[in-house]
Nucleic acid binder design. Structure first.
Length: 591
RNA sequence: CGGGGCGUAGCGCAGCUUGGUAGCGCACCUGCCUGGGGGGCAGGUGGUCGGAGGUUCAAAUCCUCUCGUCCCGACCA
C-alpha cells in the first residue's frame, strides 16, 4: 500500500546505518541506578548539564509511545488537550501566593523589561486564569483539560538520570466542577484512566493512598511503579482480597490485637555504663529490642506564654518514629524539633540515652504498640542506669496514646485483612482533589443555578512521562540490557541480516522482509550496518528490542529465519514465508 | 547549605606522592585478514590535563582562588 521511491528506501531512517545508534560498551562513572546506566549505554539520552538531558532519537521514540497511550486514554476519559506556555508571568503566582511559598525550586527569571517570570513547574495558576476568563456558567461544567508539557523544577539534588531531573516532560490535567460530587466523579474517572494507562504500558504498579497535605480530605492517590530503586516506601496488605496500599508516611499503625500481658516480674534497676542506644543496651542486657521501650524528647506546641514545653514520645525499641504523624499531633511543635540536650539535663535531670517513663514529669505520648508491652526495659532517668521488667500502671504511666510510628512488615493491615508488606516504589502518577484552593485565591467563579457566583471545585492529575521511561527500565532489564514492554519499545522488531554486504540472497530477503513489515505498520529497524554479528546482537539486546529476526545464508538455504524473543533464552526457527504472520501474531494485542 | 569524592581524547582510566617530551584500553579513520555473540594484524586521527592566578629555568604534578560534577546529609513534594 505504501510506495517507496528509491531514495526514501535507501535513506529510510529505520535502517540502522542511517539512524543514530549511540550505544556504549562502558558504563559512565556517574550513573548510579540501573535505568540511568542503561539509558546512557543504549543511547536513549545524553546529559547536557546537571538534571538536563537530551533525548536522542532512540529514546524519543519511547517517549512518543507513552504520550500516545496517555492521549488515547485521556481523550477516552473525556479530557481535552491544550497547551500552555512553559514560561509564566509572576503576577499569577503572586495571586495564588505561591510566588512566596514555592522557594528556590521555582526557577525565576526576568525578561528584557525587568518583569518577573518563572519557568512553570506546574500549571494550576495558568489554567485557573484561563477558566475564569473563558467560562461563566455552571452549565459549561464539568470540564477537564490536559497538556503534555516540559516542566522545570530546580531540584536541590537532581539524581538518577531522568528519574529526578530538573527539566522533565509531564502530562498534567486539571478539572473544573460546580460541586464536590462532580469533582469526585471525574476523580474516579481519572483513577480508572490512570489504571488503564499503566496497564497498557505494561508496568507493575500500585495505586497508593497519599498524604493529602495541608489541603485536607483523603482525596489524593499516587500511582507507583514497584522497583528496588524507588524513592518511596509503599505499604500494602498481603491479603489478595484487600486493595489497601498507602505511602508509608501515611499508613496507619494499628493497635495489636493481643492484649497486654500481666506483669510477671518485679521491676529492677540495672547498671548500664556507656550504653546509650537501644541496640547497645539490649545487647548489653541480652534482651530483644522488642522488649525495650525508647523515649524521645521533642519540643511541644507553644503554650500561652510562648514557651515550648518538653514532650516525651515512647515507642517500642525496634520501631521508628514517623515524623509526619508526630508533627500533626496537637501537643507537638511543627516543624518537629528534638529537644536540645541541655534542656534534658536541666529539666529532666538525666541525659539522652537514659530517659524512661518512670517518674517523668512531662507529657508522655505513647505509641499504640508501646501500650501493650509488659515486663519491658527503659531508661531509668539516671545516667548509666536502666529499669528492667517495667509495667504500665504498676510502675509508670503515659498521658496519651497515639499512632506515631512507621509501620513495619508484618504489622496488621489497617484494612483489617492480612498483614503489611513494604516495597519500594517510583511515583509516576498523582491524582488530587484541590477543591477551591486556587479558584478562591484567584477568584475563579461561575454563576450557579441561582445566578450567584460560586467558586469552581478543581482536581489535578499528573503523570511523569519521562520518569515512566526510567521506571519501566528499572522493572525490565537483565545483564544484557533493557527488556522493554512491547508498548514502550522504540522499535518492536529488529531485523538482523548477517553478511548483508556481500550476500545478495541475504540482502534481497532482508529488504523484502523489511518492506513487508513496514507496509504492515510494524515498527521495525533493520540492522544493515557493516558490523560483525556479535555487535548487532549485543546492540539489539542492550536497546531492548522485543522481537529479533536473524537472516543468514545458512537459514535461507533451508527456507528459515531465526526468531528470538528478548525475554527468551533460545532461538526458534521460522519458515521464511511465515515470518510476517508470525510477528503480527506476536504483536497482536498492540492495535 | 554542610560533609566527602572526582575533573587528563567521545567513554573508562593511569600518570600527580618525589615538577623535566601526556599515556593505556575501548571507540573512531585507513588497509589487509576474518565473518553466527562486542574478532585479528598493521598504520593513523584526536587532549589549551575544567578555568584563573601564583611559585619555578620548567607545572597535569606544588600553592591560592574559582567553576563543574557525583555521593551522603539537610531541604522540598
Amino acid at each position: 500500500m505504501v510506495h517507496y521511491f528509491s531514495y526514501y528506501w535507501i535513506y529510510s531512517p529505520m535502517r540502522a546505518s542511517q539512524f543514530l545508534i549511540a550505544t556504549q560498551k562502558e558504563t559512565p562513572a556517574d550513573a548510579e541506578v540501573i535505568s540511568h546506566q542503561l539509558m546512557l549505554r543504549a543511547g536513549l539520552i545524553r546529559r547536557l548539564a546537571s538534571g538536563l538531558y537530551t533525548w536522542l532519537p532512540m529514546g524519543l521514540r519511547s517517549i512518543r509511545k507513552v504520550e500516545r497511550i496517555v492521549r488515547e486514554e485521556l481523550d477516552a476519559a473525556g479530557a481535552q488537550e491544550l497547551l500552555m506556555p512553559a514560561v509564566q508571568p509572576a503576577e499569577l503566582w503572586q495571586e495564588s501566593g505561591r510566588w512566596q511559598q514555592y522557594g528556590p525550586e521555582l526557577l525565576r527569571l526576568k525578561d528584557r523589561h525587568q518583569r518577573d517570570f518563572c519557568v512553570g513547574p506546574t500549571h494550576e495558576e495558568v489554567i485557573t486564569d484561563m477558566m475564569r476568563k473563558e467560562v461563566r456558567s455552571y452549565k459549561s461544567l464539568p470540564m477537564n483539560f490536559y497538556q503534555i508539557q516540559t516542566k522545570f523544577r530546580d531540584e536541590v539534588r537532581p539524581r538518577f538520570g531522568v528519574m529526578r531531573s530538573r527539566e522533565f516532560i509531564m502530562k498534567d490535567a486539571y478539572s473544573f466542577h460546580l460541586d464536590q460530587q462532580s469533582l469526585q466523579q471525574t476523580y474516579d474517572t481519572m483513577h480508572l484512566a490512570y489504571s488503564h494507562i499503566f496497564t497498557r504500558l505494561g508496568l507493575n504498579f500500585r495505586a497508593v493512598r497519599a498524604d493529602s497535605g495541608s489541603i485536607g480530605g483523603d482525596a489524593s492517590q499516587e500511582f507507583h511503579v514497584l522497583a528496588q530503586s524507588g524513592e518511596d516506601d509503599i505499604a500494602f496488605s498481603n491479603d489478595p482480597s484487600s486493595h489497601f496500599a498507602a505511602n508509608i508516611e501515611t499508613a496507619e499503625a494499628m493497635l495489636p490485637k493481643a492484649p497486654r500481658a500481666a506483669p510477671s516480674k518485679a521491676m529492677k534497676m540495672v547498671h548500664t555504663p556507656d550504653q546509650k542506644t537501644i541496640q547497645s543496651v539490649c545487647e548489653f542486657l541480652g534482651l530483644a529490642a522488642t522488649q525495650s521501650l525508647k523515649t524521645l524528647v521533642v519540643l511541644g506546641h507553644e503554650d500561652d506564654n510562648g514557651q515550648q514545653p518538653l514532650v516525651a514520645l515512647v515507642l517500642r525499641g525496634d520501631h521508628t518514629m514517623n515524623e509526619i504523624k508526630v508533627e500533626k499531633h496537637p501537643l507537638i511543635a511543627s516543624p518537629l524539633t528534638m529537644a536540645p540536650e541541655q534542656r534534658i539535663v536541666d529539666e529532666l535531670n538525666t541525659t539522652p540515652g537514659s530517659i524512661g517513663p518512670v517518674g517523668l514529669s512531662i507529657s508522655i505520648i505513647a505509641d499504640r504498640c508501646a501500650t501493650v508491652m509488659s515486663d519491658f526495659t527503659a531508661g531509668a532517668n539516671l545516667p548509666g542506669y536502666h529499669h528492667t521488667n517495667l509495667n504500665w500502671e504498676r510502675d509508670c504511666d503515659y498521658t496519651q496514646v497515639a499512632d506515631i510510628r512507621n509501620v513495619v512488615e508484618g504489622d496488621p493491615s489497617p484494612c483489617g485483612h492480612g498483614n503489611i508488606e513494604i516495597k519500594r516504589g517510583i511515583e509516576v502518577g498523582h491524582i488530587f482533589q484541590l477543591g477551591d484552593k486556587y479558584s478562591q485565591a484567584m477568584n475563579a467563579t461561575v454563576l450557579n443555578e441561582n445566578g450567584k457566583p460560586q467558586f469552581m471545585q478543581m482536581g489535578c492529575y499528573g503523570i511523569g512521562i519521562t520518569r515512566i521511561i526510567a521506571a519501566a527500565i528499572e522493572q525490565n532489564f537483565d545483564e544484557n540490557g533493557i527488556m522493554w514492554p512491547l508498548a514502550l519499545a522504540p522499535f518492536e522488531v529488529a531485523l538482523i541480516p548477517l553478511n548483508y554486504e556481500k550476500s545478495a540472497v541475504v540482502r534481497e530477503t532482508t529488504d523484502a522482509l523489511y518492506r513487508d513489515f513496514k507496509d504492515a505498520g510494524i515498527d521495525v529497524i533493520m540492522d544493515d550496518r557493516a558490523m560483525r554479528p556479535g555487535v548487532k546482537f549485543a546492540d539489539a539486546e542492550l536497546i531492548g528490542i522485543p522481537h529479533r529476526i536473524v537472516i543468514g545464508d545458512r537459514g535461507i538455504d533451508s527456507g528459515t529465519l531465526e526468531y528470538r524473543d528478548r525475554r527468551a533464552v533460545a532461538n526458534e526457527d521460522l519458515p521464511l514465508t511465515e515470518a510476517l504472520d508470525f510477528v503480527k501474531a506476536k504483536l497482536g494485542h498492540r492495535q
